[in-house]
Amino acid sequence: MKLTLKIWRQGGEFGKGKFETYQMNNANEHMSFLEMLDVLNDQLISEKKTPVAFEHDCREGICGTCSMVINGQPHGPLKGTTTCQLHMRHFKDGDTIVIEPFRAQAFPVIRDLVVDRSAFDRIIQAGGYISVSTGQAQDANAIPIEKDVAARAFDAAACIGCGACVAACPNASAMLFTSAKVTHLAMLPQGQVESHKRVKAMVAQMDEEGFGMCSNYGACEAECPKEISVSNIALLNREYLNANLSRTDF
């Protein structure tokens, strides 16, 4: 396969950032997208040029490290797939591929395609947990949880924290990410006790980080590699309204 790659380079000799064009002559359809970039980097290193910085780790679609926008879509064209699980058989010989970092005010670019997503950590730190210290737990089977409820909690908990939702959203909103955690914990009986406090703190932190607001576009759901549903956002909205109307608040 022959490809033309237009890749965003930033930092070092590229300063504030610009697109560089690279010709790739030895890609093949069995490669994953990241393996194709590995081959490009090998080529760049052999020419003593600076390789393209991109983040990646597990390459199994679960760690959430890989982050790039491929032809305008976070994680590329394949639905429900992270960049590392995207294979070149979904591209054609002769294609031009434009690769950019996730762009959002709250995700500053560190280098080339690498961005800082620590804002997500701070949202979780604000309240995305159940306050139970080690050793305090009762027997695991003491609280039965309906199978479907557990499944819904799981669906939300499947979020890998990659940030594709933010990258896809025209408003760079982190609502899908935040709502996935709120839903995961709100569905479970264990998470009820501090649910009001949690949702308010997490939304406040989300705003503080400079993410945009949700305009219910649905781009986040469409681009989420784990296909987290926007109905979680509805649930977040409801939880937030409830929390603010509840008596304990005043």
Binding site: G17, N71, G72, A172, F211
Partner: peptide, 21 residues
């Protein structure tokens, strides 16, 4: 305006609009 600011200074060169109307 706030949302535009959240998007950041640098726009995407290519922007797909999947999933949105």
């Amino acid at each position: 305006l706030r949302n535009r600011k959240a998007r950041g200074g640098q726009r995407y060169a290519v922007k797909a609009v999947s999933g949105t109307t």
